[in-house]
Computed example of a mutant assay.
Amino acid sequence: MIRVSDIMEKEIINVKNGKRMGFITDIDMDTNEGKIMSFTITGDLGRGIFSRNGEGQVIFWNDIIKIGCDTIIVNIGSELNIDEFNI
């Protein structure tokens, strides 16, 4: 079993593009079922209550691939576009 305080210290990483998304600031739970429904995260600039635009981004429980020691790996958004890089 994992504690909520432990989850909130983990950094969110998107497996589709490798980007660091930020940290959890809020958790939405279904209290009747005792299940986590989603997380709200801040941008990667810090651990403040709000992201840069004043709102957090929502990550749904179904989007989580793995909860590790230091990170939570999620699968959201589009694939990495290799054309963005000058290789």
Results as ranks from 00 to 15, higher is better:
3 R>E: 01
4 V>F: 15
6 D>L: 02
8 M>Q: 08
8 M>T: 01
10 K>W: 00
12 I>G: 09
12 I>W: 06
12 I>H: 07
12 I>V: 00
13 I>W: 00
14 N>H: 02
14 N>L: 08
14 N>Y: 03
15 V>F: 06
17 N>H: 13
17 N>W: 09
20 R>N: 13
20 R>F: 14
22 G>Q: 07
22 G>R: 00
23 F>E: 02
24 I>L: 14
24 I>S: 02
24 I>T: 00
24 I>Q: 04
25 T>N: 15
25 T>K: 15
26 D>Y: 15
27 I>V: 07
28 D>T: 09
30 D>A: 07
31 T>I: 14
31 T>W: 10
31 T>S: 11
32 N>V: 11
32 N>R: 06
33 E>I: 05
33 E>P: 07
34 G>F: 01
37 M>W: 15
37 M>C: 14
37 M>P: 10
38 S>R: 12
38 S>I: 10
38 S>Q: 12
38 S>P: 09
39 F>V: 02
39 F>Q: 04
39 F>A: 09
40 T>N: 14
41 I>A: 07
42 T>G: 15
43 G>K: 01
44 D>S: 14
45 L>G: 11
45 L>W: 13
46 G>R: 02
48 G>V: 02
49 I>K: 06
50 F>Y: 01
51 S>R: 01
51 S>N: 03
52 R>V: 06
53 N>T: 05
54 G>M: 04
54 G>I: 00
55 E>D: 00
57 Q>L: 03
58 V>H: 15
58 V>G: 15
61 W>L: 09
62 N>Q: 08
63 D>I: 02
64 I>D: 10
65 I>V: 11
65 I>W: 08
66 K>Y: 10
66 K>D: 09
66 K>S: 14
68 G>D: 11
68 G>H: 04
68 G>I: 11
68 G>N: 04
69 C>A: 10
72 I>G: 08
72 I>Q: 02
74 V>L: 01
74 V>K: 07
74 V>E: 11
74 V>M: 05
76 I>A: 10
76 I>W: 13
77 G>V: 00
77 G>Y: 12
78 S>D: 14
78 S>F: 14
81 N>I: 00
82 I>R: 10
83 D>F: 06
83 D>P: 11
84 E>V: 07
86 N>C: 09
86 N>H: 13
87 I>T: 03
87 I>H: 12
